[in-house]
């Protein structure tokens, strides 16, 4: 039962983490699955691959990935496609990390554009680089993928975690009562 309380606590951790990131563009919500083994209840976390809603921003350097795949920025993978040009003309995210193309950071000249297949072209149509993406994935420019957290279901998860915790506590108290009886009442000599 103590493991059930721990599990409920992990579920709350995940639900609040998801809720906190309901406005983080490109955020993928964490999901939990519970299973029971010899050591009690265990929580497994995984990241949802569900596509987030697409929000139109009309800024030419906002890129939304439709399908699988991620942007590589500074050695990390992200789905947040809010890029700006930095002072050296490279595409960079809000943390200043540069977006990687096939070989190194992508330099983005004036008037260049990103095509739906991820290729970056100059205004004259000359190919510069390509954002590496798996086949079948498209890029939409002027839009951002919003967080795929569903605030309603996460609020329910918060409630559910709280109630499971409460239930587990009640059961734990009941077990404690039983043991109390066994230890103090059963063997008592009248």
């Amino acid at each position: 039962m103590a493991s059930a309380m721990r599990a409920a606590r992990s579920q709350l951790d995940v639900a609040t983490q998801n809720l906190a990131n309901v406005s983080s563009d490109g955020f993928r919500r964490l999901t939990t699955t519970l299973d029971l083994d010899a050591r009690g209840m265990r929580v497994h976390q995984s990241t949802s691959a569900e596509q987030g809603a697409i929000r139109r921003t009309n800024r030419p350097l906002d890129l939304a990935i439709l399908g699988a795949g991620t942007f590589r920025v500074g050695g990390e993978a992200t789905r947040n496609g809010a890029f700006v040009r930095d002072r050296d003309g490279f595409l960079a995210d809000d943390r200043g990390r540069r977006l990687a193309g096939r070989c190194g950071p992508i330099r983005f000249p004036d008037g260049a554009s990103v095509a739906p297949d991820g290729s970056v072209q100059t205004a004259a149509g000359r190919f510069i680089d390509r954002i590496p993406l798996p086949p079948g994935t498209r890029i939409e420019t002027g839009a951002l993928e919003t967080s795929n957290v569903n605030a309603i279901s996460e609020s329910l998860n918060v409630l559910e975690a709280q109630r499971s915790f409460e239930t587990a506590q009640k059961v734990l108290l009941a077990i404690d009562d039983t043991r109390n009886k066994a230890a103090n009442d059963v063997g008592r000599i009248q």
């Binding site: 609040t16 605030a151 918060v158």
Partner: peptide, 27 residues
């Protein structure tokens, strides 16, 4: 509107965490 509701949902998260602490103390 979205920000306001999201704020409320997060506030509920804080409350739930607090409630769990209370329950744990009642052990």
């Amino acid at each position: 509107m979205t920000a306001q509701r999201a704020y409320e949902a997060n506030a509920k998260g804080v409350q739930a965490a607090d409630e769990m602490l209370r329950i744990a103390n009642n052990l």
